[in-house]
Design a protein around this nucleic acid. Structure first.
Lengths: 167, 167
DNA sequence: TCGAACTTTCAAAATATTTTGAAACATTTA
DNA sequence: TAAATGTTTCAAAATATTTTGAAAGTTCGA
């Protein structure tokens, strides 16, 4: 396979993976592009490479920066802004895990907690509901905890975790 | 909070969580409904409760069954089919993890492997690309492995894993 | 303070996904 | 075998999401 072909395939694949995980395709593609670029890219570079509009590029770069996985850089003498991706993959995964926990798991836990406190209903249905939501709360908070434990090990968390699991 | 309100909130929340993870809203809502229902429900029941069409219900029930987290049941003497959700949450999470690995991670690994085998290009860009995709392959396959290790412990895997991590 | 260079915003357009509903299909019973 | 009961399919409609592009905003240097 030739470089250009491989590059395009990578960007497409990363984009598709993104959509499957609730991240918009372009955002994932920009990230892919920045990841494999040895040097920071300007907005123009990205627009050109991915054939997307200026507005789209701008918005998605902002999102990526909100996630903390893409950074703005300034080159001396250049007026333009340049962008680069988090280079360390462990760190990338840790940040994504943290953000998803904060944005999705924590709020869900809150709702689960609130709704399992239903009052004044002794029906079988209500009892079953209460039991289920409590069980779910318990499970999700344990899972979230596990994720925290795993990702708080800064260096090489994947490897460390595997080692611990094999003991 | 009253039962009906809590129930509706739960279904909405579960649906929203689903979308954020690339699962369609209705599919997640049907699953939520079945989870909190003490007894299996018929297609009619589901349609009525969620105010959705027959076709939509049918298609999403099929998907849920493909994922192995909802089952068809037959009640003696009844012509209709009834549906119920996997009741064990550990088991539910294991099945989801397995399916996502099979459907998304494995194919991605395949692509990563293929594209890091680019030939005849000695440029810095190509070298960087190769290094990055290899690193990614390595990371993703370790993560996938870890997930397998964690979920292959049938009973209470979350708890077991946390214990091991704390040692 | 002005104008050039660049970025952000956001309403409208394009695109993608989901949902509907009715016809086709399947199965059971009389 | 026909009617009754129930399920699936899928093209079209509805809805939701993404993308565009041009105007507004920002920053910097002269």
């Amino acid at each position: 396979m030739k470089f250009e072909e491989a590059k395009s395939k990578f960007i497409q694949t990363w984009g598709a993976l993104g959509s499957q995980w609730g991240i918009n395709k372009t955002m994932a593609q920009i990230h892919a592009l920045l990841m494999i670029s040895p040097d920071p890219l300007s907005m123009e570079d990205i627009m050109e490479e991915l054939h997307i509009s200026r507005g789209n590029t701008s918005m998605n770069l902002r999102s990526l920066m909100d996630w903390g996985i893409v950074f703005k850089e300034y080159k001396p003498g250049e007026r333009k802004e340049f962008f680069s991706a988090e280079g360390n993959i462990d760190e990338l995964a840790r940040k994504i895990a943290k953000e998803r926990s904060r944005r999705e798991i924590k709020p869900t836990l809150r709702v689960l907690h609130d709704i399992s406190a239903i009052d004044g209903d002794e029906s079988t249905k209500a009892a079953h509901f209460k039991a289920k939501t409590e069980e779910l709360y318990d499970f999700v908070s344990r899972a979230d905890n596990m994720l925290e434990k795993i990702t708080e090990q800064k260096e090489n968390w994947i490897t460390k975790t595997i080692l611990k699991l094999m003991r």
